[in-house]
Amino acid sequence: MTDEAAHRTFDDLIAEGASVPTEGWDFSWFEGRASEARPSWGYAKAMAGRLAGAGAALDIQTGGGEVLDFALANAPGRPRLAVATEGWPPNLAKATALLRPRGVAVVASPEDAPLPFADGAFDLVVSRHPVEARWEEIARVLEPGGVYFAQHVGPGSVYELVEYFLGAQPDERRDARHPDRERRAAEAAGLEIVELRAERLRVEFHDIAAVVHFLRKVIWMVPGFTVEAYLPRLRALHERIESEGAFVAHSTRHLFHARKGGAGRASRP
């Protein structure tokens, strides 16, 4: 807990966590209030390297565009064509404002709709933490030899926090994002898995405001979360953090490097 937070009341912290804007995937607000270990592969920098060698690149579910913006800023070269999709209007506006100066076209596309692009339009598709990987669509928009390079949220991610609020979850929900399941689905769509790596990482929440903001921002963790609905559990967790220290959970992440069969004009290893 930060020194400032240590002198604030439960009501103050709840009000702050409930008022912080949730648009985009900028998590800088959490500094000093929550922490998450990062995967060893360094996805954003690895994405930058991939973008440097691409001809036409697509970033699916870009959020506020922060990861793509970082990758383009740090890439030694850039693709001839860069496009991003996003389905949530507040994120769409933020991503457009951030990425348009870099020459990226940001396209409104709901997560559950077909991608609005022609077959074989891209030699590189990237995504960081897609809600769901729609493998048939990813394979369709990749040219032969094209690459899908993404970081996914894994199974049971931050479930210590989820189950604190919801109780024990069924195995079907806990394992829905298992990398073995996703491997099989990707292969069924015609993609060859070049590399698949998984890691389990420590997460710490140092005050209750961080918990509230996290659950408002990552809305699929506790569906329908509101402060009012969970106020007794929030108060109990606040008291636990004050007496015992940070609430510890674990995130899971996996890195996908997949390739569409065939030889395209910009086939990558």
Rank of each mutant, 00 (worst) to 15 (best):
residue 228 E to H: 07
residue 60 I to W: 07
residue 10 F to S: 14
residue 134 R to H: 05
residue 239 E to W: 13
residue 19 S to M: 05
residue 136 E to W: 07
residue 100 R to F: 01
residue 95 A to L: 09
residue 165 F to M: 10
residue 189 A to G: 05
residue 108 A to G: 05
residue 262 G to P: 04
residue 191 L to M: 08
residue 8 R to N: 10
residue 127 S to H: 11
residue 243 S to R: 08
residue 223 P to E: 13
residue 6 A to C: 04
residue 244 E to Q: 06
residue 123 D to L: 00
residue 37 A to T: 13
residue 83 V to R: 09
residue 204 E to V: 00
residue 258 A to N: 11
residue 109 S to H: 13
residue 223 P to N: 10
residue 36 E to H: 12
residue 227 V to P: 14
residue 218 V to F: 14
residue 244 E to F: 06
residue 243 S to P: 01
residue 243 S to I: 05
residue 209 A to F: 06
residue 99 L to K: 02
residue 136 E to K: 15
residue 51 L to C: 15
residue 75 A to F: 04
residue 207 D to I: 00
residue 32 G to Q: 03
residue 179 P to M: 05
residue 9 T to A: 12
residue 89 P to C: 02
residue 154 G to P: 15
residue 95 A to D: 12
residue 93 A to D: 09
residue 129 H to G: 00
residue 9 T to M: 03
residue 23 E to V: 00
residue 53 G to K: 14
residue 25 W to V: 04
residue 266 A to Y: 10
residue 179 P to G: 08
residue 124 L to P: 04
residue 12 D to F: 01
residue 236 A to N: 13
residue 249 A to G: 14
residue 87 G to H: 03
residue 175 D to N: 07
residue 65 G to E: 00
residue 137 E to C: 04
residue 214 F to Y: 11
residue 263 A to P: 00
residue 194 V to H: 07
residue 49 G to N: 10
residue 106 V to L: 13
residue 246 A to I: 03
residue 17 G to R: 01
residue 36 E to W: 10
residue 206 H to S: 07
residue 230 Y to N: 09
residue 96 T to F: 08
residue 216 R to A: 12
residue 115 L to I: 09
residue 61 Q to Y: 03
residue 36 E to R: 11
residue 198 A to F: 05
residue 199 E to S: 07
residue 178 H to F: 03
residue 19 S to E: 15
residue 225 F to D: 15
residue 26 D to T: 02
residue 9 T to P: 08
residue 59 D to R: 06
residue 175 D to M: 00
residue 131 V to Y: 11
residue 234 L to R: 11
residue 10 F to N: 11
residue 36 E to S: 15
residue 87 G to A: 06
residue 96 T to G: 06
residue 122 F to K: 11
residue 166 L to H: 09
residue 10 F to Y: 09
residue 116 P to M: 04
residue 165 F to Y: 10
residue 171 D to A: 12
residue 30 F to V: 01
residue 194 V to Q: 12
residue 246 A to C: 02
residue 81 L to D: 14
residue 246 A to S: 09
